[in-house]
C-alpha cells in the first residue's frame, strides 16, 4: 500500500503512539476554577440587592464575558486543545455578534 511510505514523513508520528492526555489539568485545578466562577456568580447576583447605579450594566457584562471565556477556555479545553477547534467556534461566535449586533443597531436598540 503506497500510503505507508508517507508514514515516515509524518513529523509527529511518534505522538500518535503515546496515549496523550491532551495535557488537561488535574481535578483540583478545575475545582478552583469552579470556585472562582461561583464567586463571580455571587457578585453578579449581588447587583440585585446592592445598588451599583450606572455601573451595574457594564459590571454585569464584564462578569458575563469573564465567565463565558473561563468556561469555554478551561472547561471546554479550548485553551489546551488544537487551535482549529477554537477557529471553528470563534467564526460562529464572531458572525453571531456581527450580524445580530448590526441588526439590533438598525432597530436603534443601543440608543435607548
Amino acid at each position: 500500500m503506497s500510503a505507508t511510505i508517507e508514514h515516515v514523513d509524518e513529523p509527529d508520528a511518534a505522538a500518535h503512539q503515546g496515549h496523550d492526555k491532551h495535557h488537561i489539568p488535574k481535578d483540583g485545578y478545575f475545582i478552583r476554577v469552579a470556585i472562582i466562577l461561583a464567586g463571580l456568580t455571587a457578585l453578579e447576583t449581588s447587583t440585585y440587592w446592592l445598588n451599583f447605579g450606572s455601573f451595574a450594566t457594564p459590571l454585569l457584562l464584564t462578569l458575563m464575558t469573564i465567565k463565558f471565556f473561563m468556561i469555554i477556555l478551561i472547561f471546554m479545553h479550548l485553551k489546551f486543545d488544537n487551535k482549529l477547534f477554537s477557529v471553528m467556534f470563534y467564526i460562529g461566535l464572531g458572525l453571531a455578534l456581527f450580524v445580530f449586533g448590526i441588526m439590533l443597531f438598525t432597530f436603534q436598540f443601543f440608543r435607548g
Binding site: 458572525l95 456581527f98 450580524v99 448590526i102 443597531f105
Partner: peptide
C-alpha cells in the same frame, strides 16, 4: 456575503446610514 444582507431591504426604510 455576511455583511450585505440589508441590500434586500433598501426600500423598507432602514435609514440613510444603514
Amino acid at each position: 456575503g455576511w455583511g450585505v444582507w440589508a441590500h434586500h431591504m433598501f426600500a423598507s426604510g432602514l435609514g440613510p446610514v444603514t
